[in-house]
Structure formats: structure tokens, C-alpha cells
Nucleic acid binder design. Structure first.
Lengths: 153, 153
DNA sequence: ACAAAGTCTATCAATTTAGTATAGATTGCA
DNA sequence: TGCAATCTATACTAAATTGATAGACTTTGT
């Protein structure tokens, strides 16, 4: 399950991506308001994303956050890993949060592990091939469909 | 992430499946010991599986739990749902634990939702096509591989 | 100098997960 | 019939994680 932190991070990045190349930085407070995220919580999240090289920031008047990377290069799996933790079902198949299974007497004979690996790979396949840019595009398309539908009434 | 409860449930079912059609019921205490699961915790888990029609039980001397269904028909996705909860990344795409997204002003335009759906479907594809029987078979194969390897030394 | 931002550290509250305790209900058998 | 084995049921506690807040500090532009 995605944590709120991860969800907030993704939403904030989408907001920042919509401004990419068009305007200056966005203030935390602005993002928090438009995306309905608790300001203080968002501060911590954005800071973390900055520490991981995804965002840049500027202090003082007209300051704020901005994307350092192209939205096309910011992929969901990284955002989830930075903010939420593991994608895998069990720690012993996690690439970034690996831990030996306590329960497994022998990791090799753990049949569940094989299945968990499959699930991880399938999830990762999707999450590492979807970027923030993709989400922005998807949003636009979905909005259009919605308008069409309502005008048909 | 799988909860311990789900993991324990799967391990217990695998243990029960190994006895399927060969012997009488297995006592909670036996399973708990062989699978290294806290007894009291396991009690609650097995009870839940019984209430969902997967296990049957017998009280008194020589009592215990036994599989009501064929291990081939007990699929990982059901076990996880019964014991651990949702498989989906976010509640608004969960088949069994659906909840409207608080954050999404409009569910339809939630781009994340589409991705979460994909991930859910991919995970479900694997988990609903893997049965307890499959795990038992996998275990056996893995054990053979291990023996071969060690005899090569 | 001062106001408008982000930064940092600490802490708290709510929720979920894991596990325990205790009393009760059935069953089989001596 | 009575007792021991075994599951059933309810309630509780402890630990971990997540979500959120507070307040002092730093940097920047005017």
C-alpha cells in the first residue's frame, strides 16, 4: 500500500511538472494549498526529494521549489522508494530494503520468495516505466474525456 | 508489503497441504512449532481461515485443523485478502477494500489511479494463479536442487 | 534591516500490527 | 460421568509505523 507520504510526493511533483519550463519556483504553501497537503508535512517531503537530487530550491522572496530533472526522467518507482520505502511484498526480495527472512530457515527453499520476486518484478516493470510526465499527460487526456462526456448531456 | 499474519497463514496452509489426504488433522500447537509461529497468534489466523471456508476443525483429542478445499484451489490472493487486507497500492483501486480517494477531487481524472490499477492487475494475475499446492511443489523442487548442489562439492 | 521564503530538529498523536491472557465450549475416551 | 485435550471467543497490551505539528534558525532580495 502506498503511504500518504508517497502519494503527496507524487502529487507535488505533478504540480511542479505542470510548471516545468514555464515559470519560476513554486512555494511550498502554494503546492500545499492546491494539492490539499498539510504544509508542514509537505515541507519534509520536498526536502527529502531535494536531498535525492530530484528538486532544487531557492530561499527568500520569490523562492520555492522546482524540478531539477526533466519530468520524463522522474519515475514513480524512485519517488516511492525515496518517500515510502519498499515496493516488494517481503523484505528478502526487496532490491533497496533487503533483509534476510527471519522465518525462512533456508532462503533458497522459500517457495513464497519466488512468487514475491515475480510480483515485485511485475510491479517494478510498471512503476519504473511511468514518469511524472506520463501522469501529467494522462491527467490532460482524462480531463478532455470528462469534458466531452459532460457536453454530450 | 505482506503482513506477518499473511505470511504465517500461507506457511500454515502449506504445512496442512503437505498432510492433505495422508493423515488426520494437525494440531495448532504442532503447526506453530514446526513453522515457528506464536501459538496464540496462529490460533486466531486458523480460525479466520476456517470462517472463510478454507479450513475445517475438530475439537478434543486427536482434533486439529485440516484443509476443506483442495490445495490446488486455495490461491494466494484469497489468503492474503482474508488475512492481510488489500493487494492494491491505493484503496480506490482495491477490489475488496474499496474506498473513495480523499485526495482525488475527481476519481476519473486521477492519473495515479490508472497506474495503480495496472499494478494491481499485474500482481493479482500472479497471486491468483499461484496455489498452496504450487508452493508445496516448488518447495520440493528447490529442496532437490539444494541436495544436488551440496553433493557436487 | 526586515520580511519572505526554505531548513532543521524534536516531538506528539493516531493507527496498525503483533502478540498475550483468560475463560469458555466441544469432543472422545476411560 | 468426568476429565483431559483441543479448538473458540473476547478482551487487552505492547511495539512499530505513519501522519502531522511546533518552533527556532538560515538564507535571500529589496
Amino acid at each position: 500500500m502506498l503511504t500518504k507520504k508517497s502519494k503527496y510526493a507524487i502529487k507535488a511533483l505533478v504540480a511542479l511538472a505542470r510548471h516545468y519550463e514555464t515559470e519560476g519556483p513554486l512555494r511550498i504553501a502554494e503546492i500545499a494549498e492546491s494539492e490539499k497537503i498539510p504544509t508542514k508535512f509537505l515541507e519534509a517531503i520536498l526536502l527529502e526529494l531535494r536531498k535525492h537530487g530530484i528538486l532544487g530550491s531557492k530561499k527568500g522572496v520569490n523562492g520555492g521549489y522546482y524540478l531539477l530533472k526533466d519530468p520524463k526522467d522522474v519515475v514513480l518507482s524512485s519517488v516511492i522508494r525515496i518517500t515510502g520505502g519498499p515496493i516488494a511484498l517481503i523484505p528478502c526480495v526487496s532490491l533497496n530494503f533487503y533483509e534476510r527472512c527471519e522465518e525462512c530457515t533456508n532462503e533458497v527453499t522459500c517457495a513464497l520468495r519466488e512468487i514475491a520476486l515475480k510480483v515485485r518484478d511485475a510491479s517494478l516493470e510498471i512503476l519504473s516505466n511511468t514518469s511524472i510526465w506520463d501522469l501529467v499527460q494522462r491527467e490532460k487526456k482524462l480531463a478532455k474525456v470528462k469534458i466531452k462526456k459532460s457536453s454530450k448531456k
